[in-house]
Design a protein around this nucleic acid. Sequence first.
DNA 1: TAAATTAGCGAACAGGTGTAAGCTCAAAGT
DNA 2: ACTTTGAGCTTACACCTGTTCGCTAATTTA
Lengths: 202, 202
Amino acid sequence: MSRAEQKERTRQAIINAAFSQLSAEKGFASLSLREVAREAGIAPTSFYRHFADMDELGLTLVDEAGLMLRQLMRQARLRIEKNGSVINTSVETFMEFVADNSNVFRLLLRERSGTSAAFRAAVAREIQHFSAELAHYLRKQTDCKAEQAQLQAEAMVTLVFHTGADALDAPKEHYAHLTRRTVLQLRWLAHGAASYGRKISS
Amino acid sequence: MSRAEQKERTRQAIINAAFSQLSAEKGFASLSLREVAREAGIAPTSFYRHFADMDELGLTLVDEAGLMLRQLMRQARLRIEKNGSVINTSVETFMEFVADNSNVFRLLLRERSGTSAAFRAAVAREIQHFSAELAHYLRKQTDCKAEQAQLQAEAMVTLVFHTGADALDAPKEHYAHLTRRTVLQLRWLAHGAASYGRKISS
DNA sequence: TAAATTAGCGAACAGGTGTAAGCTCAAAGT
DNA sequence: ACTTTGAGCTTACACCTGTTCGCTAATTTA
């Protein structure tokens, strides 16, 4: 095994160790370099061969989380093409993502309002991507001004993310109920934005 | 000075010390018993005469924050009676609250998705109160089903809180812009909920 | 083949943490 | 006036933290 290859492998071991230690009870801030190193199977000091400090590791985790968010969007688009019902399919896909990647979603959720400005900015950027894609979609679907589409998309993302946060503390049998509620909220929003816009322009 | 009186005084000193140490860079989780005690002007061990541990102090802080939230609602109602424009006045009042009590709002925001289930539950309860009052108001204003009013209120609160979170990282000259955007989102929601409901019932 | 690079390790340090034990001494209760 | 109570203190302990230094051993380069 080549040297660079091995290095990349333990780098991934560190990242995985960090993700696995994130949980409902433990946020990134309360992660310790030594514990992460222990789980990754290296000495504490070897950590520095890969990251300058914990913050750098944290930003890497946020990047990975953003990547998964983009995978989620792709999957949602695929399902929508087959299924049709846009809002319902999107929310259902999102809820599955939250259920299957709780720790990843939790990271985004927490660091969005966390103590590090850099983390907050990084998360905000990822979510911004998310909203922008949705806005683009909305503009194609219903013809409206760009600014308006963006604003609507952000409201939708906010509502869906909030439901995701609730889902983390709810038993799985409540998911369907949460989904139904959110779908209704999004429909109101879409309906209102469309008719309100028409009223203004008329 | 009576004994009970003095005890209450240092208890408040502890609470104030804790609030003052909360900031954009420091969340409750990274608060240390010793530092809080130092700022409160007591020995670390004396802390235990007032709280069993930091968690108990934290729940007390959340309670105080909830209290301020209720003051905020009262103030908003007063202003609405004079001013008229419900949504606009509410959002403006809320934004002022966030600006004037950043640390209090930050506490609610962070612990809502924090690492302690007890904290999350406590914050959720306070916000639930908030939404319930708004729902009550909506029902009086526009006649609709109770469940629908509640759902609409929760969406509104979610959007407003999210804007508050953004405001914490934005310079004050952006507040007006943020307010305008949020007002528009809320109007869409109200408009959509009203007409969507009518469409269903007809 | 010889030299240079470097991932990983062990030992050690300085500083922070929560909390237990036991004391003082002024207020409250009898 | 005597006793009890309890807020606050000092000391002490055990533990965990991030980080520096110098070393080893294996891969890569020349």
